[in-house]
Design a protein around this nucleic acid. Sequence first.
DNA 1: ACTGAATACGAGTAAATGCTCGTATTAAAA
DNA 2: TTTTAATACGAGCATTTACTCGTATTCAGT
Lengths: 211, 211
Amino acid sequence: MTEDTPKTVRKRQARGEKRIAELLDAAAEVFAEEGFKGATTNAIAARAGASPGTLYQFFKNKEAIAEALMARYVEHLRRAHGEAFDLSVARLPLDRMLDRIVDPLIAFDRANPGFYALLSDPHLSPELAGAKKPAQKLMFERVDAMLEARAPGLQPEERRLTAEVAVHLFRGLLPMIMAADEAELPRVSDETKRALRGYLAPRIGVEPAVE
Amino acid sequence: MTEDTPKTVRKRQARGEKRIAELLDAAAEVFAEEGFKGATTNAIAARAGASPGTLYQFFKNKEAIAEALMARYVEHLRRAHGEAFDLSVARLPLDRMLDRIVDPLIAFDRANPGFYALLSDPHLSPELAGAKKPAQKLMFERVDAMLEARAPGLQPEERRLTAEVAVHLFRGLLPMIMAADEAELPRVSDETKRALRGYLAPRIGVEPAVE
DNA sequence: ACTGAATACGAGTAAATGCTCGTATTAAAA
DNA sequence: TTTTAATACGAGCATTTACTCGTATTCAGT
């Protein structure tokens, strides 16, 4: 209600939104280095080249920072991998399908260590846990849809479990993926696909279902 | 030097060691609930029914508590799964081998949530990271030795990587394993073995090597 | 040039936390 | 019984942290 769209007060936010982006960038780094609990609002502000007061002008509290950061990540994820999870890849042989899905995921996670830090932190407040749910849900639903397109005969319940396990398997290897340097990455990436293939092949087959 | 072995000063430690055990039990619970950063020394002392001063009589600081706790866990692990990793199981068919190894590991992790909390916490100080290394090393070496007994032909380098990935795969499923209630556990346990089998079978075969 | 709202600051506050210290209690040794 | 070292206490100190507030600066619209 009273949702005005004033002609004025538009360029105003330009500065502010840039500051917000800077603060989120800083928060991503600090969260990645220190974890959520270990991160300090003052440290985040300092890294963004801002003062604590500025930070609290845009974010109600520390949790709000993490929530906004997660929201931004989800947005990125949705865009960056809308095509990675295009259902057309479900018709590729399993090996190629995994190439098409896993490579972008690895690239995204390595490019966004803050995302990994927040997502893998098991000790978040209920609100924060709620904030990271959309990201998990997004991933899970994409995998589930992929499995359905790939193996229509699979029971929904079994498919659900398979998708969840597959996501966890990938996440289990994330520490290795994140720690690997550029030279080791191909091997780690390869092992990731091997593991997923080994788990998935008995359930969805190596070749796509005929239609 | 002057390392005396006094006849006296022996029963003295009885009280103390009991207190230490109580404090470590309390620390395990608090770490499991709050993580390392979130845990409070006062909370640990309170849960142990002791005062902060008492805690600091036995532990130099918060890190020392976590280190001692990890050391105790490693000790437990070593004992509890010395037999789980007995190399004779390397001669079993892969399915049975995984049963023999995975079930005790799941039981241990579920019985010791504090262990999982510390081990999976990615944001520990260097000292703490060093303290959890022995646990990781223990697990890794056991898996590596098992692989060697099982598939002597495997290249050491490939074996090393396989062991590391297998450990990470298991750890990736730990969140599901820990979250599952008693009724869901069999399915989760089953999926864990499926995943490991799928990954390992191409490398070490379904049947043990003949000698 | 002027205005006023959005933006930015950073010292300051209250609360929490890791840790210390002086003292009291226990119990084994003499 | 006396001694004495180990054990236990808990108030309190020093530091850190999340967050506030009064003020200063920027800048679009006039």
